[in-house]
Design a protein around this nucleic acid. Sequence first.
DNA 1: GATGAATGAGTATTCATTCAT
DNA 2: CATGAATGAATACTCATTCAT
Lengths: 204, 204, 204, 204
Amino acid sequence: MRKEPRQNRSRATVEAILRAGARVLSDAGWAGFTTNRVADLAGVSIGALYQYFPDKLSLVDAIRRRHIGDCLSVIREYKDAGLPPAQFAETLVRAMIATHSVYPGLHRVLLDEAPSSDDHRNPNSEFEIEYLGYYMQAISSCRKRGPSAADHTTSLIISDAIDGVIHNAARRNKLGDPVIQTELARLIRLYLEDTSDVSAANVP
Amino acid sequence: MRKEPRQNRSRATVEAILRAGARVLSDAGWAGFTTNRVADLAGVSIGALYQYFPDKLSLVDAIRRRHIGDCLSVIREYKDAGLPPAQFAETLVRAMIATHSVYPGLHRVLLDEAPSSDDHRNPNSEFEIEYLGYYMQAISSCRKRGPSAADHTTSLIISDAIDGVIHNAARRNKLGDPVIQTELARLIRLYLEDTSDVSAANVP
Amino acid sequence: MRKEPRQNRSRATVEAILRAGARVLSDAGWAGFTTNRVADLAGVSIGALYQYFPDKLSLVDAIRRRHIGDCLSVIREYKDAGLPPAQFAETLVRAMIATHSVYPGLHRVLLDEAPSSDDHRNPNSEFEIEYLGYYMQAISSCRKRGPSAADHTTSLIISDAIDGVIHNAARRNKLGDPVIQTELARLIRLYLEDTSDVSAANVP
Amino acid sequence: MRKEPRQNRSRATVEAILRAGARVLSDAGWAGFTTNRVADLAGVSIGALYQYFPDKLSLVDAIRRRHIGDCLSVIREYKDAGLPPAQFAETLVRAMIATHSVYPGLHRVLLDEAPSSDDHRNPNSEFEIEYLGYYMQAISSCRKRGPSAADHTTSLIISDAIDGVIHNAARRNKLGDPVIQTELARLIRLYLEDTSDVSAANVP
DNA sequence: GATGAATGAGTATTCATTCAT
DNA sequence: CATGAATGAATACTCATTCAT
């Protein structure tokens, strides 16, 4: 950020810009994300936007930092709870859907479309590593045993399947449908409960 | 399309443009998809491109029509085969991954980023109806029973979970990883085999 | 200037702004001379700058007035000294170099790049008239005779040649080189000593 | 340049842009040099300008390359002629004035104001080295003796004095004045003819 | 008075599309 | 028919200047 907002007025401005930016990204995608449109929607002048964000990329980075923080919070909250698979799946799915409900398209646009200074698309980006790390902890905690090498693959499958279902539900405007939520949770539960998997081989 | 290519040369030109377009969409996304870039890569002049496609949208529509046709073929092929869940899941996943391997990013860009004249995002678009219809047939065929209302939800969950896993694998350059393929198939198989689901309630 | 600074604090503020302005003009040229940058460097707020200077032009005019005053002082000091050509040239060159050493680029930027309300580029500007007038006096005093019409041309040649050599030395970071100083003085001396010139014709 | 003009039409476009650019730089300086203004004056659209020049800097570089070529030609032409000082000075000054007469402000703007990719301001820029090299050859050729280390300083003084007088004459709209030309030539001749200089020490 | 947040006209650059050759 | 030069609306970003606090 170009400069730290000190007065109340400027903090409100920055907040409005971030909200408007998330809205525009979610609704119009990266191609429709123009700085003038964001400023308009935020109700500030284009100059005000550039007081705080030196360029378009830094704005989208700020929006991403905030959104990724939200995503990490969700999984971080349950990673050590030791809930049984049925409850873990149910809780995780509900929380993820809630996180994606305000700006349904935001996650996809931030991860797939929008460019980034730190390349978060990289499988070794800080975000991916932290995110999958939490998932692996959650899985071993859920299965009441120590970590296993195969948990990495399990994490990928679970997080990506959830991602796919939520993202397509958002596309179809069905994020609020309780049947989707129940069935997605069932998909995850069945996968977690099955012990005939490759990971079993690694746990003596 | 502005005019039907009749001569061989014209057909080759159109083919080159479509291939180049798919490549650019897959590699550079909608934001990097410029008509001049496509013409360059296709080895034709920008004027030639506009001979066959009246505007950018008609070009992306043509690319989409072709890609969607490929996707439909995959599921259409197995919808009446009556394979047991394990084999159906295995076969379906393998075929889907193969379909996405030539232009790994194309599917996502076409469905999520690129605008469209006929709104294919619409849950009632021709494509979605046909696609999900095939899935529903495949599911009831797989379960050796007649169709059920709940098969619609099952179709959504399965197709969207596959979509999510494949798309993120592509993003991580892991589309060829056999472990991903096996585990994705297992996820789908477990879900199909479980009969404690809501759909059971709908079948007397 | 918008208002005369009366208190000590105000005078210090104005002084800081003028110094910062000269520094920025010298280092970054007219294109890099922004009011916010000057205010920053001066350690005052942009609002304070606009308290004393109603706009950017008035600021650059104030800087120019001060610099031109310094230049006039140099030549005014020696115009009636009646030094022989060798000493006059030596002294003049040394003093001119000293005057340009604090803000080496300032003179050029003020005269060539920066716009001005009173058009100082105009050959009939107050500054040019006074400056060349002093030169003409110095020349006739140096040659121990009365003024001549041709002294105007001689003044132009001498002042412009000095200007060119000093300005290019500054550009090459060689303003401090004593060889440059010696040779420039020699150039001027030879020209002043030569009596076969047109000016001779004009003095009966 | 972004692409080589092949057809006649495009060669004319590039030529018009270069001429218009030189005119704008000369008349309005770097600060007034806007790409839209250049395109307007050239009678082409802004898009056409960017077909040939990828950005503003590349345009000013092209203008500079051409102008510097002209300057080098002048001195290159006389460097080996072996003319006596009086004629050499006369000829050089006349040619230099002619070169600066089409776009009187251009030289100053290109060397002092406009930024450059290859930093031609650098005393070690290709241009400076070649330019001063020619001057040194011309001086030793003019003095009918071999090269001397002090010729470097002599070159600086002569070229910079000429630069200063021409540039200020241009500023005063007096480039065409024959008295200026005569007197400038005299200044240079006297300096070249004087053998009491430091360079004498280096010639046994 | 002093501050610095906000404004918005102006500038560089891109890219879909047209049309003379 | 094919080519590629030309067009110009749209978009990112800057900076002189104002004014609420």
